[in-house]
Amino acid sequence: MITQQQLAQLADQVSPMHVIVDADGQILSAGPTLKKLRPDEEWVGQAFFDFFEVSRPRWVHSFQDLLSTAGSKLHMNMRGEPSTGIKGMLAPLPNCGGAFINLSFGISVLEAVQDYDLTSADFAPTDLTIEMLYLVEAKSAAMEASRQLNTRLQGAKIAAEEQAFTDTLTGLKNRRAMDHVLGRLLKSGRDFALMHVDLDFFKQVNDTMGHAAGDAVLQHVAQVMVECTRQTDTTVRVGGDEFVLILDDLTDRKMLRKIAERLIARLEEPIPFEDKLCHISGSAGTSLSTAFEKPDIATMLHQADVALYFAKNAGRAQHFFYSPEMEEEGATGASVSERPKVAE
C-alpha cells in the first residue's frame, strides 16, 4: 500500500498545485507551486480554509460541505494579497476520510505568472497551461515585433514626407511645402503676410567665385532668414536665389517692415567663404491676406512678386508692400524668375 509520503511525492510530480487534507480538513501536503504562492506560510498542519475561500458552490462553509462537492468544479480565492483566483476539484481518499484536491489557476494564470514569477517548471509537463503560456508569449512577441515594425514604418513615412517638403541644400521648406502651408492657412481663414525675397548680386558670386561659394551663401542666407523670423513662421526656398516667408497671424505693417529691414541689413553683411568675402543684398515685396475678401495663393504670390520687382527697380536692398498702383506703373505680371533681371 502506498504511504502518505509516497503519495505526496507522486502528487508533487504530476500535480504541483495540489492539497491533501485529512478527515478534519487539516493540510497533510501541498504542492511546490502552491507553496510559492504563500512562501512564508507553513502549510502542513493548517486548515484548508485558512488559505482558501470558496466562492462557488455558495453553500460550502465547512469541510464536510467541501467533501460533498466531490467531482464538481470549485471556485476559490486565495486569502490575503494577491487574492488569486483558483479552480479545483476534490477526490475523496479511500479509508481515511481525507481528500485530494487538484488545483489550477484557470483564466487567472497570466496574472498568477506575473504576480508570483512562475515559470514552466512550476506546472506539470502535461498541463495545457504551458501550451497557453507559449501561445501568449508568441502572441506578445509577434505584437511587439509588429509594434516595432509599425514604429519604423511610421518613422520612415515621416522622414519621407519631411524630405519631400524640404530643400536639400538649405534645409528650408520647398515649394511643395509652401503650397501645403498656404492652403492650410487659407482654409483656416487666418490672417498672414507673404514676403517674397530675392537676393541681389548672387549671380556675380556664382560667376566669380564658383558654385561652391554660391551654395555656402544660400546656406548662410537660410540661417539668417530663420533667425529673423519666428518659430511659427515658414521660410521657403522656392528656387535659385528666391525665398518666400509666410508670416502667420501677422499683418501689422510696422512689424513686417521691421522684419524686412532687419533681414535686408543682415543680408548686406559680408559672408566669409574660404579666404574671401561674398557680398550680396536682398530685395523684398509683401502681400497681405487682409487685402482680400477671399485670398488665393496665386494672387498673393503675384502681388508679392510685383512688390519685389518694384523694390528691385527702386535700387535693390529695399522692401515694399504691394499696392495696385505698382501694376499701373509698369510692373508686369510675370514672375521674377521669368523676367529679365535688373543688371547685377
Rank of each mutant, 00 (worst) to 15 (best):
A307T: 03
G210L: 07
Q26M: 08
T126Q: 14
L245S: 10
F292M: 04
G31C: 10
T234I: 01
L182N: 12
L194A: 04
F51S: 05
L133H: 00
S281I: 04
T290R: 14
R253L: 13
M209R: 15
T170S: 13
T168L: 11
G85H: 15
D122S: 13
R184P: 03
L267E: 05
V238I: 15
F273P: 01
N77A: 06
Q231P: 00
Q13K: 09
S83N: 07
R257C: 09
F202E: 03
Q4E: 15
D296N: 11
A99E: 02
K276W: 12
R253E: 15
A307Y: 09
D191C: 00
E81T: 04
F100V: 13
V226S: 05
A11K: 03
G333T: 15
D117K: 12
G214Y: 09
S83Y: 04
R79W: 00
A317N: 14
L194P: 09
N174K: 03
E111C: 03
M326C: 12
V197I: 12
Y134E: 06
L247V: 13
S68R: 06
I264S: 00
G189C: 01
A304Q: 02
P32F: 06
S83H: 05
F192S: 09
L172Q: 10
Q26R: 12
M209N: 05
H75C: 01
I259D: 07
G97E: 08
T151Y: 02
M225V: 07
F123S: 06
L263P: 04
T166G: 01
D198S: 11
D252P: 07
L288Y: 12
G189Y: 09
A124Y: 09
I130M: 05
L103H: 14
Q13A: 06
T129K: 04
Q13E: 06
V21D: 02
T151S: 04
P94R: 10
A304W: 06
E161Y: 08
G171F: 07
V44C: 03
V221L: 06
C96E: 11
G25P: 07
F105S: 03
E327H: 03
K294A: 15
S108N: 04
K203V: 00
T129M: 06
L66N: 05
T126M: 13
S62C: 00
S323P: 02
M17P: 05
T208K: 09
H302L: 15
R184W: 04
M195W: 01
D200H: 04
I259S: 01
C228T: 03
A112V: 12
K173N: 11
E161N: 13
G98W: 02
I271G: 00
Y134A: 01
T129C: 13
S62P: 11
K36I: 02
